[in-house]
């Protein structure tokens, strides 16, 4: 299928000097890459920086892309690596603004929803990246064990073990924080 819907065609076009093709790829995937990075690092600015860096790395290494795999899987694999490396490089202190205005009473249910989401995200952040990554990829992207094995560059058996342990650890954190 030689058209713009086919990522591999766009990659080839890009390698042939048609820069516009990569713009289509960026347009197609930047939101998903951002959301994935956001789930990994739970920080808006960091997630945007990671997203930017993912596409720069992908573009620079386009010749190394193996067409045996889906292009977006390769992109998500870079996202995983960038998120892991980013967090290693930057142990950021999160400052919570105590003077932040409270929400209006009629926004109660939305507030509760946001608070619950925030608690789940905080719990995820407590997990080591080796457990967080498979959980995020499984629950947000719906990947199979085999696909996770490629994305995380570990055998399927390890994927399963990390997924199960991660889920158990997350459950314990949620119980401890009275979220469950």
């Amino acid at each position: 299928m030689n058209n713009e819907n086919d990522d591999q065609y766009l990659v080839q076009e890009c390698l042939n000097g048609k820069g516009k093709s990569f713009e289509i790829i960026v347009n197609r995937y930047y939101k998903t890459v951002f959301r994935l990075a956001d789930k990994f690092v739970h920080d808006f600015d960091d997630a945007e920086e990671i997203t930017q860096s993912v596409f720069v790395k992908a573009y620079e290494n386009l010749r190394n892309y193996n067409s045996k795999y889906k292009f977006f899987s390769w992109l998500y694999r870079i996202t995983v690596n960038e998120s892991i490396n980013y967090k290693r490089k930057r142990n950021k202190t999160i400052v919570i603004d105590a003077n932040m205005p409270s929400l209006e009473p009629d926004a109660g249910s939305s507030y509760e929803k946001n608070e619950l989401s925030s608690k789940i995200k905080d719990a995820l952040m407590e997990l080591d990246m080796i457990y967080r990554a498979p959980l995020v990829l499984k629950h947000f992207m719906g990947y199979s064990y085999k696909e996770l094995s490629y994305l995380l560059d570990v055998p399927e058996k390890t994927v399963k073990s990390r997924l199960y342990t991660g889920r158990q650890l997350l459950k314990d954190i949620l119980l401890r924080n009275r979220v469950l």
């Binding site: 890009c14 390698l15 042939n16 000097g17 820069g19 990569f22 713009e23 960026v26 347009n27 930047y30 939101k31 951002f34 959301r35 956001d38 789930k39 808006f44 997630a47 945007e48 997203t51 930017q52 596409f55 720069v56 573009y59 620079e60 386009l62 929803k113 619950l116 989401s117 789940i120 995200k121 995820l124 959980l135 629950h139 947000f140 997350l170 949620l174 979220v179």
Partner: peptide, 28 residues
């Protein structure tokens, strides 16, 4: 709970920032 975590949207200018940070002449 993990399945239903909401997504956030990136800044409207993220796409253009990405494109600005790429050397488009690389494969020229």
């Amino acid at each position: 709970m993990l399945n239903h975590l909401p997504d956030r949207e990136p800044s409207p200018d993220l796409q253009s920032r990405i494109l600005m940070s790429i050397d488009h002449n690389r494969y020229s």
